[in-house]
Design a protein around this nucleic acid. Structure first.
Lengths: 222, 222
DNA sequence: ACATACTCTATTGTATACAAAAGGTCATCG
DNA sequence: CGATGACCTTTTGTATACAATAGAGTATGT
């Protein structure tokens, strides 16, 4: 494995785990010694992370861990809703039976992960990611895939899922199931509208959990 | 100016001018000596150019000048239609009077560039770019701006405009004018539909000029 | 003649040293 | 006391040398 890949993986996981706090400045030198590589591959890794919005850069090229306002996140969900529902429409027109089987497989895994008193959120997240990835493959649009790869911020997806209660996890599974049905029937419009609802619901789940938490201190202070 | 900026500008213009033919391999070393800088800034420049789809990379990291199939271009125009029309809708809700004035200014420049027996295509392209950029600013969605920056391939825009006849250039101006009216009236739906038509028309102009040129040899051979 | 493996070359990956630039600090002046 | 400017530190930018790897070409065996 290349040094820049190691640096990328390491920095990314440090951001996700919170070892690097949101908004913290990240110097190339510090990361290089942390990862045991030189600055050159760190610079490559930072570019990739910037592309995926894990990292932001000031006009003078200093890097910081990205932190997102609720407005930013809203914007992301709006665009995801538009683009992923478009992907679902295309997938309905093009998905192979093999791809449909893979969707069914991953959703079955999601059901297993969810249908328990102690849901396995990590398994849910992994199969959810793969489920959406199969739909994107079926949509057969490399540009769309590239855009969504940059738009879907895994930290947000992860927080959203961790805030789901049992009922919401189950609903997510059922929506996937209906999506599979729509795609199997080659009904692009149906697939599109289910996907849009799926994403919008996720947004409101996120906003309820995080938006309100921000307002709470204000209310307490008042 | 930074060396990586010079390298970026140089390589970009070599691609646009055709000095680097479509599909040609571009080695870091060769470009470095061509630009009079070392490989380090060339690598930075190549990453940026890759981001903007001027350059593609094989799985083994070798770089080539991108060349686009009509399918790729179609895909790009579909996504642009969706995203730019969405931007127009948002712009209608948010544009400041200052931004409206700038739209009017750039479209006036477009009219001047176009309304002549020998239209100034370069001026058209520049003010067209700025016109669309003001709308994007007015939409106030950084993520959307970032996506569209990568999606709008200037070589394609340029070829499209160079294939426009006088009537099409004029039509482009009139569509912009109507867009301004829709935004001034705060009619998001109107703005959205005009923008969608504007982009779709550009696609068909491109496809008519370039798609048929590709088919012609086949027809001749048959 | 064709396939396969090997070597040799071209190209990218990484480390390091030094240059340039940005940001922060402290002293000085109004 | 606040603003301003010089310096000093930190951080990024670039060049260069060397290492690793992919690809092309060649020779050899069947």
């Amino acid at each position: 494995m290349k040094a820049s890949d190691r640096a990328y993986a390491r920095i990314r996981s440090m951001i996700l785990s919170g070892d690097l706090p949101l908004g913290a400045q990240i110097g190339e030198e510090a990361l290089a010694s942390e990862c045991g590589v030189s600055r050159t591959p760190v610079r490559d890794a930072l570019r990739r992370l910037e592309l995926e919005s894990f990292v932001v850069r000031t006009e003078s090229q200093r890097c910081f861990v990205a932190d997102w306002s609720l407005d930013d996140i809203d914007e992301g969900f709006i665009l995801r809703g538009m683009l992923e529902s478009f992907a679902a429409r295309r997938a309905a027109q093009r998905a192979s039976s093999d791809q449909l089987d893979r969707m069914r497989h991953h959703n079955a895994c999601i059901e297993r992960a969810v249908d328990s008193p102690t849901p396995d959120i990590d398994a849910f997240l992994e199969h959810n990611r793969q489920f959406h990835s199969v739909i994107l493959d079926a949509a057969a649009s490399p540009k769309l895939s590239g855009i969504l790869a940059r738009l879907i911020e895994q930290p947000i997806v992860s927080r959203t899922a961790h805030n789901y209660d049992h009922e919401q996890l189950l609903r997510s599974f059922r929506e996937h199931d209906e999506l599979i049905a729509a795609i199997a029937k080659r009904d692009g419009g149906w697939a599109e509208s289910i996907m849009l609802g799926h994403i919008r619901r996720a947004f409101h789940a996120y906003a309820d959990a995080h938006g309100r938490q921000r307002e709470a201190p204000d209310l307490a202070a008042a």
